[in-house]
Design a protein around this nucleic acid. Sequence first.
DNA 1: AACGTCACG
DNA 2: ACGTACGTGACGTTA
Length: 898
Amino acid sequence: MPETTFLIIDGNSLAHRAFHAIPHLATSRGVTTNAVFGFTSMLFKVLDEIKPDLVAVCFDKGKVTFRHDQYGEYKAHRPATPEDLRPQFPLIKEVLEAMAIPVLECEGYEADDLIGTLVTRAEKEGLSCIILTGDRDALQLVSPMTRVLLTRKGISELEEFNEGRVWERFGVTPDQFADFKGLVGDPSDNIPGVPGIGSKTAAALLKEYGRLEEVVSRIDDLPARQQEKLRDYREQALLSKQLATIERNAPLEIDLDGCRWAGPDYNRLLPVFSRLEFKTFLRTIREKLGQAEDGKDKPSPGEKQLKTHRVPFQQVKRGEDLSLLLQLCRRSGRVALALCGRRGEGPAAAALALQPPEKEGPGPTVHYLDLDAPALRTAALETLGAVCRDPEIEKLLHDGKTALWLLQHHGIPLKNLAFDTMVAAYLLNPADAGRDPADLALEHLDLVLPSRSEEALAARADAIWRLSAVLGEKLRLAEMERLFYEVELPLVGVLAEMEMTGVAVNGERLKEMSRELEGKIAALSRQIYHLAGEEFNINSTRQLGNILFEKLELPVVKKTKTGYSTDASVLEELAGSHPIIPLVLEHRQLVKLKSTYVDGMAALINPATGRLHTTFHQTVTATGRLSSSDPNLQNIPIRMEEGRKIRQVFIPRREGNLILAADYSQIELRVLAHMAGDPNLIEAFRQGQDIHTRTAAEVFGVAITEVTAGMRGRAKAVNFGIVYGISDFGLARDINVSRQEAREYINNYFTRYPGVKDYIDRTIREAREKGYVTTLLNRRRYLPDLFSANRTVRSFGERTAVNTTIQGTAADIIKLAMVRIHRELQEKKLAARMILQVHDELIFDVPAEELPVVQELVRRHMENALVLDVPLVVDMKAGPNWYEVKKIEEPAGEPPRQ
DNA sequence: AACGTCACG
DNA sequence: ACGTACGTGACGTTA
């Protein structure tokens, strides 16, 4: 019979260890969790390695222990438990409770004493013990049946001590360890020991005499120097020993059977990890769960069976069931729809969750449609189509945009998208990482979704149904209903159409550009190799660094964490010192253009449409902006002429159409003027002044007419800085002035625009009170960084707070405009299409004859998206491609906008 | 998978 | 005495 093992953990010691080993970790709402995470990691690892039969975790309890009675100064120099750690203890205990591991505490005793007591009792029962701790005192408990695992640096390294190891390391037996500490002392517990006696002497004395008491009584036999020390500190040594001796008979009420451990209770653990946002643990558990249920991996003997949210569902198998399903959907009035399939294909299956006949309980009834089964395929798709098309039936989805793509494959439109759980969850907390239905079900419903396909799809539909109610209510409480129902939800369909329309590109021109770039890059490479005296990989920063800073011995300007920095700012600084530098810079630029834009985009042209169909992400950014990928069409070059030419390949979809580009002028500064309510800044915009010139006049104290180009340039940087959360350092670096000078500009700015200063202060203060900031439409971002103990991180949080209100409000505004523009283009049955959004601009593909109408419509919706205290101004350009767009003058004769 | 770099607003 | 501008995505290299 295998031996029975008892794992005993010093909870306090491990928590401290974890706290110091894990740098910084917090939930998206700012709850610090680094110690909980580290503790849990260590726990899992050790449980996995040892597979104990019994487990217990001991904690200190009470400020005063019996040791304080013996010695008032006990642990007096120990720094107080860090403020960030204290609130993590309850969380750790929560994890332990969910793990079904007993937590032991005893008033007036330290964890050590409880461990000593447990070990003593366990050994009597013939159990072998393993103690996990960071406290060396525990070494006195080592015996033939008991080992100690001591944490070393970090959380992953453990050192195992048996009797032999203790002897090797300290030269004493475990049961002499308290005697040893009596002589040597322990500064961390403020145990004095005998000054002047170190570990070598102590070990030698104990080897000779066995016990401290014996050493003391035979004091006359000792060498003179030690005699002296011991005579002076005799009492102190004995007291020190007493303090270091672990109590083995604490009044613990639990019996050993109470520590039997049969594996974690995953069902209790999941919601705990979910609240702590331990995504990797959650994933591991979910995987385990799936495997256990599929029977591929038998649950280990004691492991509890995992419970999953299984929902009964009806598989639609016959034609008549289909027409019944449609009727049921109509009667229900709303349907949660889950589809499976990839973009570019039709859906392979669908699950529909409906209102149950009698409204009992929160659960819907679920129907499952196999859309790949040949027999029923056509009829099933028709039924699905009828449900989707019916504007009377509300559709609840998760990621409606992808659903629109799948349905569109069969020409099915989706009317009445009434909820999107992915978008709703994003608004509730844009920082949350996991946002698939299983993550949301866990977080908001405490349900674990199954992973097997039909079951999973049915459960997903069920979860979407329930989540719509729960998330809808949370949106209401957060006052985000307008943002959700008027902006984000309608935007889902708008973005889908933009993606599907796509952007036509001139593929031939792209190929030409690729060849041209290829030639230029090859020529540059040859010159670079020649100057370097050898061939190397110019794309490798490491190889380039070696050439520049070792072979050519150029001065090292900046380092990265892995070596020399070779970024553009470094190379520009070195430009004069070697002819190779400008060539490398140009090489970099051309390689970027070729790989990312020319070749990268060419590979993504849809062969069927000849266009690029980017994906817009509505639930990615922390601020509320969109992002774009595959390809990213929000970062097409414009600043450098060579790159800007890429825009030539973006053309209208047909002969006779034009590209129309409409961009907000200075939207972020206008938003700032409004939100800050600064009279001076508002006035500047109302008068239609060039804002950078105006700021230059204010900051440099000159008349508008006296502002030079240089002054305007610096003022422009100041304006940018304000939006980003300014610092003198950043500004100084950006415009190449001294830090003092930058400081002065900023001070002048705040004097001239005092409302802005107030706004920044107010925003940060409110963010600290609430833990989050909001935009004009109540979009929310939590900022846990504001509460960091690290000053740099905190400052970052403060800059982010200010920037998010501005960037996010600008995002609110353009999204609102997009929804309304799309709506009116549709109502007017115009052939013009909105094809791109680039944060502050919208791009359209417009038949020439529609240009006047579309232009007016676009301007109207963009400029009036929200009424602010300053006008919103839109600049319009049009042309045969995205490169050759020329400014269209604003309608004349209008009175100056107020 | 992480890093450095660089394209955009 | 620190170390900083805010928000993204794609590429190639290196581990």
